Simulated assay, not measured.
Amino acid sequence: MPEGHSIHRLARQFQDVFAGRRLKVSSPQGRFSEGAARLDGHLLMEAVAHGKQLLLKFDHDLFLHVHLGLYGAWSFGGDKTFAGASSIGAPRRIGERESGSSEAEPEYNGPPEPVGAVRVRLVSDHGWADLRGATTCAAITLDEAAAVLGRLGPDPLRNRPGDREEFIRRLRKRKTAVALLMMDQTVLAGVGNIYRAEVLFRQAVDPWTPGSALDAETAGRLWDDAVATMSDGVRDGKIVTTPPALWTSGAGKASDAEAHFVYKRQGLPCRACGTEVGMAEIGARKLYWCPGCQV
């Protein structure tokens, strides 16, 4: 599932290329026809990301609410003024990677014919965006959007005043294993399996430690590292949690095999202590950790 940095990249792209423009909204697949009709012809005012939720606000106080889930992705295209990634979301390989900058379509005369099950298509005078495979795609009201956001914990990529303290409070009041709490969207919004494993490793926290057993300093370090690593992901379009000293590429970039400390490295030696990286099931998801460093 795309993690929070991808959703923030999506919000940034929508803000850059669609905000302030009147959009044609349709559902080529047909499953979102009623919702599309409620949004069609209105100005997009703002794109907001919180955790894994994307909210596109229109000028009549309706929102397009999208949660990509495991298989959702947006694709984009347009004329020479329409810059940005050509695709953001699933499918992906190791980590989260979006396609590179979209190229201007020669003699752009509007969007191409829809390919596949396009749930919703947004079209401006300069470009288009197609959504496929999302778990949630709905036209919702202002109150409904507030309810969506109200169910979520603080988002490290928004990092608003008081968010750090609120995360620490929510984490430490629960007796649940911290590995589960780091992916509980009511505790911490936007962190998925990769950031969970990597941040816990980087801060040397035993994944099975109850949240209530962590001191405030350790909990604060988890927040700070989530802010730092996820901000890097927004900038780079890929989750890389290892330092350049561990990269061998002459291009100064981490290869897929070098990008992480523990994620999907079960059975391999820990990059820090040499202990075999472990993998276990917790909360129906795979957890990766180092039994030597995280004690």
Rank of each mutant, 00 (worst) to 15 (best):
E217T: 11
A204Q: 13
D232H: 13
S255H: 07
S249F: 00
I239A: 15
K173G: 08
A219D: 01
R221H: 12
E166M: 05
Q185M: 02
D224W: 03
W247K: 11
V205C: 08
A197K: 02
R221Q: 15
G220Y: 05
A226F: 13
T218P: 08
K253F: 00
R196K: 15
N159R: 07
T186N: 14
G252M: 01
E165Q: 14
G211H: 03
A179S: 15
R202C: 15
L222P: 09
K238S: 11
G190H: 04
R160K: 13
I168G: 10
K173H: 11
D232E: 14
D215G: 12
L149R: 12
T209C: 08
T209G: 04
N159V: 00
R221M: 11
R169L: 09
V227T: 05
G233C: 10
L214G: 08
W223A: 05
G250H: 06
L222Q: 04
L171W: 00
R172T: 07
E217L: 11
L152I: 02
E166I: 00
A257T: 06
P244V: 08
G192A: 11
Q185K: 07
D206K: 12
L181D: 03
V191Q: 01
A204I: 00
D236A: 12
A257V: 03
L246P: 01
L181T: 03
P161A: 02
L152F: 08
A257H: 08
G237P: 05
S255Q: 02
T241Y: 04
T242Y: 09
P243H: 11
R160D: 10
I239Q: 13
L157R: 06
V205H: 07
R172K: 14
R202D: 06
V191K: 01
I194Q: 02
V178Y: 04
I194G: 09
R170D: 08
N159L: 02
F201A: 09
G150D: 02
T186D: 13
A219C: 08
D256Q: 13
N159A: 15
A226M: 12
I194N: 07
P154F: 07
T229W: 04
S249R: 13
L149K: 14
K238T: 11
D206R: 15
R164Q: 13
V205E: 00
E166C: 04
D215M: 05
Q203L: 11
R196V: 09
D236F: 04
K238W: 12
P161C: 02
A219V: 03
A254V: 03
W208I: 05
M230W: 07
T248D: 09
T229P: 02
P243V: 10
A189L: 08
L222D: 00
V240H: 00
T242A: 10
I194S: 05
A216I: 01
K253G: 05
V240P: 09
R202M: 14
R174S: 15
A213S: 15
L157I: 05
R196Q: 10
F167Y: 10
R169E: 13
S231F: 01
I168K: 07
R160M: 13
Q203P: 01
E198K: 11
R196P: 14
V205N: 06
D236R: 15
E198G: 12
T218D: 06
E198R: 06
G250I: 02
I194M: 07
R164W: 03
Q185R: 09
E166D: 15
E258I: 05
G250A: 15
P161T: 00
G220K: 06
